[in-house]
Nucleic acid binder design. Structure first.
Lengths: 351, 351
DNA sequence: ATCACTTGTGGGAGCGCTCCCACAGTACCT
DNA sequence: AGGTACTGTGGGAGCGCTCCCACAAGTGAT
């Protein structure tokens, strides 16, 4: 286990060649062992592994990247300013999910913010230099040029939250439609009838799908949606407050609010409380994301849980496949892959 | 400006050699231009730059890393679980500061969490592979083995928040002692006399220094500190609550609280409010960090501002120096560098 | 005119790997 | 006996740079 600390006589790090000499084999064989090729006899493998341990050999990443034309690194690109990244639990949850999935890999994860023009400039340079094997995109707006840049540079990419039903990149999504439906059906089941919806940014496809789910749930239950009860938000707490104020002003009789995110629900809650409405007695409240905010809200917030961990896992899986597929200049099929993961309603005291 | 998109005929990315051929010069000359060497005539430089633009040349990072034995990347290592990273504004502030300073550099910043044993394992591998030129360490506890590992591997490192007065690594710090003094002097100036202190984790050197500043400010003003008014916290909100409860129970006559962080001040505020104490009328409250929390608290919190941006700048500066110094196997002097930056008291309604 | 230096330039060597071809050895058919 | 196939192995070539030596050309002192 313990490396004897015995480095090559030159004081530098040991190389493949030195390991090979020590193990009494050729350079190619050591390379095969290091890379887990099956075409090595057990005895040879053992000898090489012993030499590796004795010398404390660690492969030189740069040499490997140069020779193999891959970097073993992928980037998580957040096209938002850092402030939003830290403010929104969604991002850190995704990061955690991806990180967990990557933990047993050799892959290195890079976190790159591309909120400002300057940062985007840097990112473009970075991608042009092919410093990563693939890219994970989160929270991309409909008009963002990034996906085009990526396909132009032929860099494998997976997007979380497709930009539209016709998303051209491989994508991972949660079932926004189904999640919204289950939230509204839950409220209907609790006897609520005047159910408002504070939407997310409508240039985000997932937010649209939640509106669709909200509408369809009401319609299918025989209570077609009152379009006026749909108030656009923007995923921020302040947006939630603003929307809630408008809703209260125009529809004082509402008895439930389905917010497109927990953060907006938090804003809504504040306004409701200031208006003297009790939760859930007067107005039931349901959020989306099931973030830490939901658990710590007073009262605890019913919310739609997205399987973030699984989404991270799925993103990595798909990206690895893309990377592997692209290695030979394959027939880049039009079979864009797409994963949609189920959501789960977590019922708490707010509804 | 616009790259014509004309890649080498082979469809791959253009190489130095191709740029050289196009510009009618040798490979070495192109390399000199790319790396900004002054030993190139203006005419040649212009020709090379034109060729670079026409071909859309971007240097191959792996080849450069292999040949030059450097990676142009540094890591920001956070020896904490990700959750704490996202919960504490201090980290994101530091990240922002470092990121801003790095924006005009070619340097790439990597964010690495080393909270769990598994993550530390990975980090050790990572460092052993020398995948970064240097390391920025934040929030390291006194008994952490990481600094030793770094000096063993001879990886340049700068630590933010030295572990002790005898810190062996190059360090950047804010003037915790002076900051605490100014907070206490401010409270004294407002006529407060029973000033309590909720400390940070005392295995963090900066937290100790704040206690020292608190003590000395009181002593120098002729009101030696009542040691019982010093209550240990742990930088968390819950810790702030706990400490505040104890303080109120044992010292109901206190008229001011100096908390070692804004987060703890938020916890303290909650307990004070629940106990019916008005802020600042009954009890004045001062925090530390001047984070977003301080601005958004009700009432807004007086807090000691650390020049995070400047600290980030200083860390990068010092690290770059370390990296440059180490390039030739220099006489590793014992002249450990250390920067201490001044703090500023931001007075708001809470005091 | 000679020498000594400086400036700008070209290109060889080499960084530490991966990829792949060559080949020895063994096994199992014809 | 020859063919065919597969397994395990060694080592050459080459990835795209940087470093550095060599050297031509110019400059100025002797």
């Amino acid at each position: 286990m313990a490396s004897h600390g015995g480095r090559g006589r030159s004081g530098g790090r040991p190389t493949l060649e030195e390991v090979a000499a020590r193990a009494g084999v050729g350079r190619g064989t050591v390379s095969r062992v290091i890379n887990g090729s099956p075409r090595v006899s057990d005895a040879t493998r053992a000898a090489v592994e012993a030499a590796v341990a004795e010398l404390g050999y660690v492969p030189n990443t740069a040499a490997r990247a140069l020779a193999a034309n891959r970097t073993d690194a992928i980037a998580l690109v957040v096209p938002e300013p850092e402030t939003r990244f830290f403010a929104e639990p969604y991002f850190s949850d995704i990061l955690r999910g991806v990180g967990a999935e990557l933990a047993d890999t050799e892959m290195q994860l890079l976190l790159i913010f591309a909120g400002s023009d300057r940062e985007r400039q840097r990112l473009a340079q970075y991608l042009a230099a092919h410093r990563v094997d693939g890219v994970l995109l989160v929270s991309v707006h409909a008009d963002d040029p990034l996906p085009d840049l990526l396909s132009q540079l032929e860099i494998p990419a997976v997007i979380s939250g497709p930009r539209s039903a016709a998303e051209s990149l491989t994508s991972v999504d949660s079932d926004n439609y189904g999640g919204a439906r289950s939230a509204v059906e839950h409220l209907l089941g609790r006897g609520r009838r005047r159910i408002a919806h504070i939407t997310g940014r409508l240039d985000v496809y997932g937010a649209q799908r939640r509106v669709d789910g909200y509408r369809d749930a009401l319609r299918d239950a025989g209570h077609p949606a009152d379009e006026l009860l749909i108030e656009p938000g923007d995923f921020t707490e302040e947006g939630g407050r603003r929307a809630m104020r408008l809703l209260l002003a125009h529809h004082p009789d509402l008895d439930a609010v389905f917010a497109g995110s927990d953060v907006m629900a938090a804003g809504a809650r504040q306004v409701l409380r200031e208006a003297g409405r009790r939760i859930p007695d007067d107005v039931a409240l349901v959020g989306y994301d099931d973030s830490a905010i939901a658990r710590h809200m007073d009262p605890p917030l019913t919310s739609v849980r997205q399987p973030i961990q699984e989404m991270g896992r799925a993103m990595i899986d798909l990206l690895q496949t893309e990377i592997a597929d692209r290695r030979p200049p394959a027939s880049r099929g039009l079979d864009r892959r797409r994963a949609v993961l189920p959501t789960e309603l977590v019922v708490r005291a707010s509804s």
